[in-house]
Simulated assay, not measured.
Amino acid sequence: MTDGSLSPALAAIVEDFNALGEPDRLQLLLEFSEGLPELPERYAEHPELLEPVPECQSPIFLITELDESAGTGGDAVVRLFFSAPAEAPTTRGFAGILHEGLDGLTAAEVLAVPNDVSDRLGLSRAITPLRLRGMGGMLGRIKRQVTEKAGL
């Protein structure tokens, strides 16, 4: 993965979205919302540990962890955790995309992801700009947390 490019998983997701017509893209977004993993107990019992994403119209919270067993700094592996209500399928879908596309990457790989990833999904005519900005807000917070935790 080079600077400004998509991880293989994120590239595959973008390709999947762009291979579909607009109504099917929305259906795929809903499928990602259904695939978002539940919070582990350590966060479900302590939601105050998660950071809110006020750019999202729906209440969503996230936290990153770095697994340094494979390396430190930019080589640490990023783990993502999200809390998003089931009544907010668009927001959950964006969180699901970011989880599937970024979880397990190194800190350096996450930081190299372009900020316009939400624009690349081809949802601009089907989803309001405010909702797309919410995904950008999630990515921005993920990158900031990773930068801080990895010391980059």
Score class of each variant (00 low, 15 high):
G137N: 06
E34H: 13
I13R: 02
L121Q: 04
S5R: 12
L123N: 04
P23Y: 10
I97Q: 01
M138K: 02
V117Q: 05
Q145I: 09
E65Y: 10
G35C: 11
R125K: 14
S33M: 06
R92L: 08
S124M: 10
A9N: 12
S124W: 05
E109K: 05
I127Y: 01
A84T: 10
L152M: 12
H99K: 10
A70I: 10
D116Q: 06
S118R: 02
T128Q: 12
E68G: 13
P52I: 11
I60K: 00
I63Y: 13
I60R: 00
G96W: 01
F61Q: 15
P40F: 05
E87Y: 13
L121V: 01
I142M: 05
I63M: 15
E22P: 12
L50F: 11
G101M: 10
V117P: 02
V117S: 04
A95M: 11
G73P: 09
L29C: 09
A107Y: 10
Q27D: 14
E22L: 15
E41Y: 01
P23F: 10
P85M: 05
A112Q: 08
R25F: 00
E22N: 11
F32D: 05
T106D: 08
L130N: 12
P23D: 14
L121K: 01
A112R: 12
F17Y: 02
S118I: 09
A88Y: 10
E34S: 15
G73I: 07
L132N: 06
P54C: 10
A95K: 03
D75Y: 02
T106M: 10
S58R: 05
P23I: 12
Q145P: 02
A44Y: 07
L50M: 15
P54D: 14
D16M: 03
A108L: 09
V53A: 03
P89T: 09
D24C: 00
T72K: 15
L132W: 01
M135T: 01
E51Y: 08
A112W: 07
L26W: 07
D75R: 13
G151H: 04
G21T: 04
L132G: 05
S5F: 11
D16R: 13
F17R: 02
T147M: 09
A19N: 13
D119W: 03
V110F: 07
L36C: 00
E45C: 08
A88F: 10
G93L: 03
D24M: 11
R144P: 00
L6M: 06
Q27F: 11
A150G: 04
F17H: 01
L152Y: 08
V146R: 01
G137H: 01
E15D: 15
E41H: 05
G71S: 12
A9V: 09
P54W: 06
G134Q: 02
A12E: 14
R92E: 04
F17I: 00
V146K: 00
R133H: 12
T128G: 14
R120E: 08
S69I: 03
L26E: 03
V78S: 06
L66C: 09
S5D: 13
D103L: 06
G137K: 01
E34R: 15
L10R: 08
L66H: 06
G122F: 03
V53T: 09
G101W: 05
L111I: 12
